[in-house]
Every structure is written in C-alpha cells, then in structure tokens.
Amino acid sequence: MIEHVEAAPDEIYDIELEKSLLDANAKLAKENRAILDELGITALDFMGAIGSGKTTLIGKLVGKLKDRCGIAVFNGDATTTNDADLIAREGTQVVQIATVNGCHLDANLVQKAFRKIDLKNLDLIFIENIGNLICPAEFPLGSKSRIVVVSVTEGPYMVKKHGHMFLGADVVVINKIDLAAAMEVSVEDLTRDVHTLKPSIKVIPTSCKNGSGLDEVIAALSPIWNGSDA
C-alpha cells in the first residue's frame, strides 16, 4: 500500500512563477560576450546542416586570415574529432567541443572552451556549431553574429523548410555553387527565399572547392569584427 495525501480545495495554491527556461543559457551567453568584449575578441557562430561545408569554410577563412589576425576555432561535434583535426592543419588553436550526442552547443560548453586556449593576442573565435538546423537557434553562445551555411546539395527547398533557423542569422553563405547546375538548384531562388524570411540578411554564394566568394565572406564579416556592424 503506497501512502498518499490529497489536498483539500483550500490547500491548493496557484503561484505565478514567470521563470524563463532559457535564462540560464542566455545569462552565460552574456557572460561569454562580456569576457570577449573585455579582451577585444569577436566570436562568430557558424550553424548549418551536416555536410553543408561549415568546417571547410572555416578552414578556408582561417587560411586567408591567419597572417592578419589571431584566430582560434571551436569545433562542436557530437562524437568525433574529425573537424578539429582538419582545422588544426591550419596551425591555429583548436578546441574540440564534444556534446556527446547533444544536438547543439550551449554557452556553458563555450565558456569551458575559453579555459582551454590562450585568449591573449586573439582577435577572432570561429565557433562551429553542431550540424543541425533546428536546435542551435535556441541557444545563443555569446557570439557577435550568427552565420548559417547552406549548400546547394541540400536541395532547392531547404530554406523554406527551415525558415526559423534564418531569423536569428545575420549572414547566410550558400556553398557548393560549383555543383548548382548538376543539382539543378537555383542559387538565386535560395537567395530570394532567405530575403523573404529576413530582408536584412547578407547572402553570399561560395564554392569552397574553387575559392569563389570567400573574399566576399570576409568582406561581409569584417565590419562585424571591426566593430562597425556589431
């Protein structure tokens, strides 16, 4: 026999709580941002599907920028060190953030990653989020800007299907445009879809394979780390 108690009607209370469930992460994200601002470091959060080319894009950007500024990269990955290994070849500081099958990075994990690197002499931290087009949007990390990487190989409808993901982004990179004809995907249509969702987003078509558009990505992002577009 399990004991139980039952409340009389006058013992039932209904209390307003108004407790935000995303506050804990949001607070840590603000802390992260304050730490970075204090040191003059800009963090950028790259989100996008698995295979969209986030790692390759970050690797190429690091290659072009590493002689001009101090860069570190945080690679979020559910289980492997694959992406971090690829970026480490560029000779930058890399931290693998393993979410152990978690579907998104959070501000706490990013704060822990800060402790693994030398933050002195850094200008930029590129954060590669988990390959996922839904969950990361809810969890700010303390970055100054969020970039969504999509690729033509994800098909013609991916922007329409994942509209929510773009509402919090400032820049969208449409990658693998060298494959657009073969995929019968229109880069113009994808661009129009992004602007339908949010007219202020900068959209930059790239091919990380042949290097086209990479300088335009740097031109679009540099006002963010130079402070004029924060």
Binding site: V5, Y13, D14, I15, L21
Partner: peptide, 22 residues
C-alpha cells in the same frame, strides 16, 4: 514597408505558474 523587423514576442519559453497542494 518590407524592411527587416525585430521579433518582440514569440520567443518565450517560460514557466508561467505552478499549481500545488500545500
């Protein structure tokens, strides 16, 4: 006007209230 707007509502994720027996 077709410009970019800010979302001022719709991102809520909160416990509003709790009913309990005391």
């Amino acid at each position: 006007c077709g410009n970019a707007t800010d979302a001022i509502k719709g991102n809520e994720c909160a416990i509003k209230s709790v009913k309990y027996a005391g």
